[in-house]
Amino acid sequence: MPFSTPMSLAIFFVTWFIVLFAVLPFGVKSQRESGDVTEGTDPGAPVAPRLLVKALWTTVIAAAAFAALSIFAHFAES
């Protein structure tokens, strides 16, 4: 294993948040775009952000990125 357990957790945590910020805008429609603006809210606020689905996709993508990084690190130290 190329990384210690705490280092692996730290790398995965940072990777997960970077991927989260990349995934958050996917499929978002604002209230203005949907034509249903609730009074007292910002027209640019999302209608249905689907955060749980995005968190699951973020976890899958971050796990794949972490696996690729681990494989690279394993073969780079040889």
Rank of each mutant, 00 (worst) to 15 (best):
A10M: 11
T59W: 13
Q31A: 04
S4M: 03
S78A: 10
E39F: 14
A62D: 11
A62G: 12
V28C: 02
W57G: 08
T41C: 06
T58Q: 08
G27Q: 02
A67T: 13
L69T: 10
G44V: 01
L9D: 02
T5E: 01
I71Q: 08
A45D: 05
A64H: 10
S4I: 01
S78P: 12
T5F: 12
H74Y: 14
P49N: 00
V14N: 06
V23G: 03
G44P: 08
T59H: 09
A67M: 12
A63V: 10
P25S: 00
F72G: 15
K29T: 05
M7H: 09
P49F: 01
E77G: 13
I18G: 12
V47G: 02
A73Q: 14
G44F: 03
A62N: 12
E33Q: 15
G27Y: 05
V23I: 15
T58N: 07
T15M: 14
S4L: 04
A68Y: 08
L56V: 11
A63Y: 08
L51V: 04
I11M: 13
A76V: 15
D42E: 06
S70I: 14
D36T: 10
S30V: 01
L9E: 02
A22Q: 08
T5K: 07
E33L: 01
L9R: 07
V60H: 11
P25L: 00
K29M: 05
P43V: 01
L69M: 13
V28N: 06
A48W: 03
L69R: 07
I18C: 11
F75S: 09
A62K: 10
P2S: 02
T58F: 09
Q31E: 03
A62Y: 10
Q31P: 14
V23M: 09
G44D: 07
P2C: 02
I71F: 11
P6L: 00
P46Q: 00
A10D: 04
K29H: 13
W57D: 02
T58V: 07
T59N: 08
P46T: 01
L56H: 06
S8Y: 08
R50E: 05
A45W: 04
A67E: 10
A10W: 13
P6H: 00
I61A: 12
F75P: 06
V28E: 01
I71H: 07
T41Q: 06
V37D: 04
P6Q: 00
